[in-house]
Nucleic acid binder design. Structure first.
Lengths: 229, 229
DNA sequence: CGAGGTTTGTGCACGCGTTCACAAGGCGTA
DNA sequence: TACGCCTTGTGAACGCGTGCACAAACCTCG
């Protein structure tokens, strides 16, 4: 922790780097060689000051009066995000979501390789999904250890997620992407990111309700109420 | 705009309310009648001060020295999130992800009903998914208008997403949940939430890289060791 | 070579969210 | 009723992220 000056990249910035990266790749494919912070901001949906400040955390890779070299920036962001190396990923739970994830092209595209797929349902074990034969969850520790898998994706029902996470962590997985609607408990040093479809919809519902409430006055009395659970 | 005191609920709080709700429902099913902010905080994975401050935005629903009534809090949060009414949802794109979303039980469970599924692929139109016959995207405006659909889910490839969003907005959809890896442009008044699997993995990759960088010097010191910390 | 135009990099102020810490208030018991 | 215990509700301080505004730096053109 001595010269970790450059390592102080804010989480908010890290979360935006992949967005910049995607925009930059698109620009590169469109034949653009340089891009200004303003143009990149437009493509990424943020303002230009934020782009410049974010990129400044990586170093001074721009040229005043000109902008940023697209290819070079693609490389620098990729390197910072660790995308210059391949990461091995295991997916546990080959239901509808697991299928979708296994077949999702965006993984391989960014250097994430699916090392193996797992399930506990005997009817699914052996099934071929995305070119891989689904293995039984019991094999997870062996695969993770022997292949050096570091990232695990949990696409199981909620009740199974914690056990799967424990098994992953015990086998050596240090980053987990969790799609199950439960709070995972993991040791410090293990990163967990959560994607919860139901929560996203509920947040939309909140804003949607405010919109309709805005069009008509706030009636005090109990007008109508639906199922209160 | 006079007594809109209660309407100033911070976004960060809104994003946590569904998490509290889920914990509270679980507590209710476990037979708990009251819960302290500390216990709820433990279940939701936050600290108790945050729970109390968040809940205070809804009103003073707790009892000092006792805690919160579980059932009552479930009702209040549900009401605030707009979950006491049913929301109609359309899903566009019935690929792997669309299938997963259509079959995801978490939707109906919280009062979200799938009004219709759409795709443009003639081979998919007519297919029955989750009890619904997939319709052609051309029918979207009619369905949205006639049924009063307010929420749209986009599970299409990136290149089709903006057109779908435009069509949704033109038909009356005012909230969009977007799974396509593109920035959607919509008129003000329309809410968009984005879920991007690839970005989540890249964020994990960033942290994963920092871990490995921390255990060995910048040069080739191949001293690999298991989970420290 | 100098002037003008353009764009980066960043110091600074502002605002939001988090956390602390404690007064206010309810409940049970004697 | 009075006392002690417990938990809420919230004022206030702190820290992080955002956005502004501008100096520094680079390019082009005359």
């Amino acid at each position: 922790m001595t010269e970790l000056r450059r390592r102080g990249i804010p989480d908010a910035t890290v979360a935006r780097l992949p967005v910049y990266l995607r925009s930059l790749v698109a620009l590169a494919e469109a034949g653009e060689t340089t891009v200004s912070s303003d143009a990149l901001a437009g493509a990424a949906g943020v303002n230009s000051a934020k782009v410049r400040k974010d990129l400044s955390y990586l170093g001074s890779y721009g040229t005043r009066g000109v902008g940023y070299d697209v290819q070079y920036l693609v490389y620098q962001i990729s390197r910072e995000l660790g995308l210059t190396q391949d990461w091995l990923v295991v997916i546990v739970g080959v239901g509808n979501l697991g299928h979708a994830l296994a077949n999702y092209g965006g993984f391989a595209q960014r250097g994430f390789s699916i090392a193996a797929l797992f399930d506990v349902d005997p009817r699914r074990v052996g099934e071929v999904v995305a070119g891989q034969s689904v293995r039984h969850l019991d094999d997870l520790p062996v695969v993770v250890r022997e292949s050096g898998v570091s990232i695990g994706v949990i696409a199981t029902p909620a009740h199974a997620a914690q056990d799967v996470a424990d098994s992953m962590v015990a086998s050596g997985v240090t980053s987990i992407l969790n799609f199950a609607p439960v709070l995972l408990t993991v040791p410090s040093g293990v990163d967990v990111r959560k994607v919860d479809l139901s929560i996203e919809l509920q947040i939309l519902s909140f804003h949607e309700q405010r919109k309709s409430a805005a069009t008509q006055p706030p009636v005090d009395g109990v007008v109508f109420q639906a199922a209160s659970l």
